[in-house]
Design a protein around this nucleic acid. Structure first.
Length: 267
DNA sequence: TGCTGAGACCGTCACGTACA
DNA sequence: TGTACGTGACGGTCTCAGCA
């Protein structure tokens, strides 16, 4: 599953695919490393590079997706919604004196879906659309073709087929509903069609069956919705932690630079 | 050991939205 | 316009820690 990768290496399933990173076209970057098809980008500027090219203009930009802007305007290259984590001892801030030669960007983190700093033209509706949608229960049923053969079924639901759930029918082939069981122990009912393909005819019974189906689907939907919500909250919490660390690092750096400045001033 | 409050989880309902 | 879906709200149940 592609998407946001936080500092712990966990993936944000809510984030959409990262924009293409065309770093090689940027003059200031002479070395690039894309890590394992995720959107972790490792950039290292050579020590001999002229530091003036990457002079940071502003670190925290309100209403800007990228927290770091450079004179070379890296932001559009990295794409909207990036948070760049910078690890010590390499500096975010380059001093005019050039005391800090290398800028090392450890992580480029996609935060699009969990980003609460959207521009005004992005409605909550669009935000919701950015949430990755698991195939609906209906689609799962359709994919199963309405007829579920006895025995185990494997459904690839992960990115690139990474996670494969094994399903096993506990009473398939019998009349009525079959219980499909996830390998992890979750289970749900799948209504089995009558041989004619219709569920049953008959007014009240049909209504009741429809209602049952609706409740079943809604139950699944609610479960899925809660799962997404939990992931979303987790991503937000991760992001808070990342930004707090970043803030702390910047404060420390500012402090040291101030000290350096005062020291030079007194000499 | 029984009671209780908090938190997590779940099912259901209602409502808004997208889509055919 | 009907239908399906996603999600907030609400109430019920269960678990667990703290306490008398």
């Amino acid at each position: 599953m592609d998407g946001m990768v936080d500092e712990n290496g966990t993936v944000d399933p809510l984030a959409p695919s990262p924009p293409p990173v065309a770093i090689s076209s940027v003059g200031v970057v002479t070395q690039q490393q894309l890590v394992a098809s995720t959107n972790i980008v490792h950039l290292t500027l050579p020590a001999s590079n002229n530091h003036a090219q990457t002079q940071v203009q502003s670190v925290i930009q309100p209403n800007q997706q990228s927290v770091i802007q450079t004179a070379a305007n890296i932001q559009p290259v990295l794409g909207k919604g990036n948070v760049i984590l910078v690890s010590k001892p390499n500096s975010v801030i380059q001093t005019p004196q050039g005391s800090l030669h290398a800028l090392q960007v450890i992580n480029v983190v996609e935060t699009t879906a969990s980003d609460d700093s959207y521009s005004d033209d992005e409605s909550p509706k669009k935000r919701r659309d950015l949430l990755t949608r698991r195939p609906s229960y209906r689609k799962i049923l359709n994919d199963l073709g309405g007829v579920i053969p006895a025995g185990a079924i494997q459904i690839s639901s992960g990115e690139g087929g990474q996670s494969i759930h094994t399903l096993s029918m506990t009473n398939s082939g019998t009349a009525g509903a079959a219980i499909v069981q996830y390998a992890q122990g979750q289970e749900f009912f799948v209504p089995v069609m009558a041989q004619s393909g219709n569920i049953t005819s008959g007014g009240g019974e049909d209504q009741a069956r429809k209602r049952e189906m609706r409740l079943l689907k809604n139950r699944e939907a609610a479960r899925e919705c809660r799962r997404k919500k939990k992931e979303y909250i987790k991503c937000l919490e991760n992001r808070v932690a990342v930004l707090e660390n970043q803030n702390k690092a910047l404060i420390d750096e500012l402090k040291s630079l101030k000290e350096l400045y005062c020291k030079q001033k007194t000499e």
